[in-house]
Amino acid sequence: MDNNDNQTTAVVAEIKPSPSAFRVIVREFLKDKVAIVSLALALIIMVGSFVWTLFIPNDLVTSVNIMDRYLAPGVNGFILGTDDGGRDIFLYLVVAARNSIFIGVSVAVLNELIGIVLGTISGYFGGLVDNLIMRVVDFWMVLPGNLIIIVLVTIVPNYNQFKLIGIMTLFSWMGTVRLIRSQVLSQGRRDYVMASKTSGTSNLRIMFGGVLPNISSIIITDLTLTIASSIGLESGLAFLGFGLPNNTPSLGTLIGYATQPEIIVDRWWVWLPAALLLLVLSMSINFVGQALKRSADSRQRRG
């Protein structure tokens, strides 16, 4: 009787399902206290900027009042002071953060969609299809993307933030394609893919119903890191004067005031809050992305 009980216990232990990939990643992520704090900071900044702007009239942000020009923080009720046009830096900063985050997230999502489709097709089929897609990627990667973006920004008619998103996406999708392709190539040699092909399962179902779920952790990690880099790229373009239109606030626009020596020292409140916000946001997202990457690597080591 005891032997039967032991055998039953052994069988139950064998058929007990292992933790899902998502649960393993969450468990590993929660062990990283820095990543948890970083995630909280990133969510507060990102969600807070979008929610707060719902209660801020656009006219209040962009209205000019030269009588309030360069007021120091705290004067006349301005929390972070005013700029050269008398605009409230605090309100301007909130709207600028929302615009920069919206562009960064939009570009990152579009990059992932392009990367998932092209990378999956390239890695799964291989051969001529893979060579063709990879040669296009290689050609696109050697182009001076940032210079072309600057040129396009200056010549595109009726320029707005949505066209900026399209232009940035046009020259930033290649790395994601290569990453997804490499992951799909490694998955394509697994037994479950071979078994699915043998059983007559369609290629489309194998690619997007079997392979992609198994590399979802890599996709989430890449999406997170791409958001940070896209926000940085948009802010850099705005800093150089090739970002959003002049009447549209951006973190890079505020930081651009630091090019004037007298503002750097005597009117630090105009540019420093935006620089600190961008620094905290970028570092927080990067910490979260690195923690997700370590968690995904840990899951893969465990099988």
Rank of each mutant, 00 (worst) to 15 (best):
V61K: 09
Y70S: 12
I25R: 15
I25P: 13
M168V: 12
V64C: 01
P245G: 12
I121Q: 01
S100C: 03
P57L: 10
I167M: 06
V105N: 03
M134R: 01
A35C: 09
L292N: 14
W52S: 15
I206N: 09
V137P: 15
M141I: 08
M141N: 10
V177R: 08
I218Y: 14
E262M: 04
R181E: 01
G48Q: 03
N146F: 13
G104M: 01
G86D: 10
A21N: 06
V47H: 11
T62R: 15
T62P: 06
S38M: 08
I116S: 15
L152A: 10
G126E: 09
I89R: 10
M134T: 04
P249E: 02
S106P: 04
N214G: 08
T169N: 14
Q183T: 01
S172K: 05
V94C: 09
G123T: 12
F22N: 08
Y159Q: 07
N246L: 15
R23M: 07
W269K: 15
R205M: 11
M46H: 11
W140I: 15
S196E: 00
I66C: 00
I285F: 03
P57G: 06
T226K: 13
G104F: 01
S182M: 11
A10C: 00
S282F: 02
D266Q: 06
W140P: 15
V64Q: 10
R302K: 07
A275I: 06
D266H: 03
L147N: 10
A296G: 11
G127E: 07
N160D: 12
G243V: 11
A97P: 01
A96M: 04
L233V: 06
D130Q: 07
V64A: 08
A42D: 02
L143N: 00
L225S: 14
A42L: 06
A291Y: 05
F287S: 04
A96Y: 03
L143Q: 00
